[in-house]
Design a protein around this nucleic acid. Structure first.
Length: 573
DNA sequence: CTACCCTGTCATCCA
DNA sequence: AATGGATGACAGGGT
């Protein structure tokens, strides 16, 4: 990388010297500064998969640097883009485009009305245009012609002889219908019609890619894209690569939701092509690269253009809605976002197959996430600033679920979006009641919307309550089951202790009987006979004295006999 | 096909 | 009176 950078830098300096000899001033400051500007990285911080960041908002940001920090899906995309821009900056000689920018001012100054698609005026911020404008003179016009001749000679020296009239040359180039010839020729026209440098063209390209302009690719856009090919082609880059670059917006146009994936897909090819190109630039001569990359990408480009053109009707139409969507949050919610699964699934289905075939990650299915608030964790999750004052979106956690898994919208979410409720279900449910009432009163909502808002809030809260209730019920059941187990264990323990005590008592009783017999055997009655154990027993008093007591045999049989006698007497009476 | 489970929703009670 | 929590009951979908 450093070698290539040094190589190009030295080459640029040498070329600057050569151009200065013919009176052309080339300012490399912007170019050299371009080395480092793409390296500025924004620490996106922790990412979350559960956000509702409308991707089309990114169209209004430059090169995605304004992307919301909670879009991990875009990390790869924008990182690749930044890296690609960096590589472009390193590997592409930009002076032809700078010269083109200078030519633009020449044409626009002389004949603005005939400049066709030239709508830009003087927004070129590079030092090149301003510097060149300040040095306009006749020798400069000669150099223009020389450059035009050289460029034309590069493309097709036989078909494009030196033309003294730039306007005629421009018009003749505009009339070209062959795309292959446009690759080499219309770079001049684009340079004339577009008042941009290559850097601006790159930026514009990126913006166009993100913006997904909802109109058929105009000649202006084609030339804009090929303006980059101008820089690449004259710097021994591949015009075919320019075709692939130009094809990228087609994918974006066809499917806004798939623009990331499509870009990743196309950008992947592009990145590889650029890297290969850079690598080869460092090893081989520059002449061999153009043809090699041209051959390698020609088939791809033609195939891409064919496929994309075939789907351009539907996709452009769908993207029209995308581009026409304003920053209104309501419109975002109403489907203008385009990344809603139920919204774009139909419109972009045609191109989806194509993009998914190329892209390893289909972000269109990971944008709208399930906003079910079933998980209690959603209350503790990082928030995302939303248009409404102070209301924070509470995305679901991204660590306990499949982030890219397609999730269905809840019914209330669909209802809210169907009625253009400018709040998410989470917002409706979780906002304080004061704020909720304020919303109901001050948002100019229709009665149906108010009713829906109340229903959504009620259902949402009841859903949470039901979940809590069920959880408590399950916890209660679990607690009761544990209590049952504990009590059963206690009962078993007590039964074992009882059995042990019974057994112990039986053994003690036997010992007492044996001891009693021994004691009584040692004692004598009045007649000198041993005491009969069946008639006498030993009793242990409270004071510890042991006395011999005669066993009082209860006349059980007698009492029962008496009772039977009495009953017999009663029966007789 | 049926049983079971899970979840959302409604109705109702109550604080 | 309004709001919201709690809970039984029911329905629908998934396994």
């Amino acid at each position: 990388m450093q070698i290539a950078k040094k190589y190009f830098t030295e080459g640029l300096i040498q070329l600057t010297i050569l151009l200065s000899l013919i009176g052309v001033r080339v300012d490399f400051d912007s170019y050299l500064s371009g080395y480092y500007t793409p390296l500025i990285e924004i620490n996106s911080g922790p990412s979350s998969a559960y956000i509702q960041t409308p991707f089309h908002i990114l169209r209004d940001t430059l090169d995605g640097y304004g992307v919301h920090p909670k879009c991990p899906e875009l990390d790869h995309f924008f990182a690749s883009r930044r890296l690609l821009d960096e590589v472009r900056t390193l590997g592409s000689l930009r002076f032809p485009t700078q010269l083109n920018a200078w030519l633009v001012h020449e044409v626009s100054a002389s004949n603005k009305d005939d400049s066709g698609p030239s709508t830009t005026t003087t927004t070129n911020s590079t030092d090149t245009s301003s510097g060149l404008e300040s040095n306009r003179d006749e020798p400069r016009d000669d150099s223009e012609l020389l450059l035009l001749e050289g460029i034309a000679a590069l493309s097709d020296p036989a078909d494009h002889p030196p033309t003294p009239n730039i306007d005629q040359h421009w018009n003749s180039l505009l009339s070209l219908s062959d795309l292959d010839s446009l690759v080499m020729d219309t770079d001049i026209t684009s340079a004339i019609s577009q008042d941009v440098s290559l850097h601006d063209a790159l930026v514009a390209f990126g913006v166009v890619t993100e913006r997904a302009e909802a109109r058929p690719l105009t000649q202006q856009q084609r030339t804009l894209f090929q303006q980059e090919s101008t820089g690449l082609s004259h710097s021994d880059a591949s015009p075919g690569m320019a075709l692939s670059l130009a094809a990228l917006p087609f994918v974006s146009l066809c499917n806004l939701t798939g623009n990331v994936s499509s870009h990743s897909a196309m950008g992947g090819c592009l990145d590889e092509a650029v890297f290969d190109q850079i690598n080869q630039l460092g090893l081989e001569g520059m002449d061999a690269i153009d043809n090699q990359l041209m051959d390698s990408l020609q088939n791809l480009d033609s195939q891409l253009l064919e496929d994309l053109d075939s789907d351009s009707g539907l996709s452009l139409e769908s993207s029209s809605d995308m581009s026409s969507s304003s920053s209104s949050y309501c419109e975002d919610e109403c489907g203008a976002t385009g990344y809603s699964s139920e919204v774009d699934s139909v419109a972009s289905k045609g191109i989806m197959d194509y993009t998914t075939a190329l892209s390893p990650v289909d972000l269109s299915e990971s944008v709208w996430h399930d906003h079910s608030y079933s998980s209690p964790n959603f209350l503790n999750q990082p928030s995302v600033t939303l248009p409404h004052k102070g209301i924070k979106e509470e995305p679901l956690s991204d660590d306990d679920g499949p982030r890219f898994e397609e999730r269905e919208l809840s019914r209330d979410e669909l209802r809210a979006r169907a009625m253009c409720i400018p709040f998410s279900v989470l917002q409706i449910v979780n906002m304080p009641v004061e704020e909720f009432l304020e919303v109901l009163d001050g948002q100019g909502l229709s009665p149906e919307q108010v009713t829906l808002l109340r229903d959504i809030r009620r259902r949402g809260k009841n859903k949470l309550a039901a979940q809590n209730c069920r959880k408590r019920k399950l916890d209660a059941i679990t607690g009761l089951e544990e209590e049952v187990e504990r009590l059963q264990a206690q009962r078993d323990r007590l039964l074992r202790e009882k059995q042990l005590k019974v057994k112990t008592m039986g053994a003690v009783g036997q010992q007492i009987e044996q001891l009693t017999r021994d004691v009584l055997a040692q004692l004598r009655d009045e007649s000198g006979q041993p005491l009969n154990p069946e008639r006498f027993t030993l009793q242990c008093g409270a004071n510890g004295r042991v006395v011999v007591q005669p066993i009082r045999r209860p006349a059980v049989a007698t009492s029962t006999g008496n009772k039977t006698v009495k009953r017999k007497k009663e029966k007789k009476q």
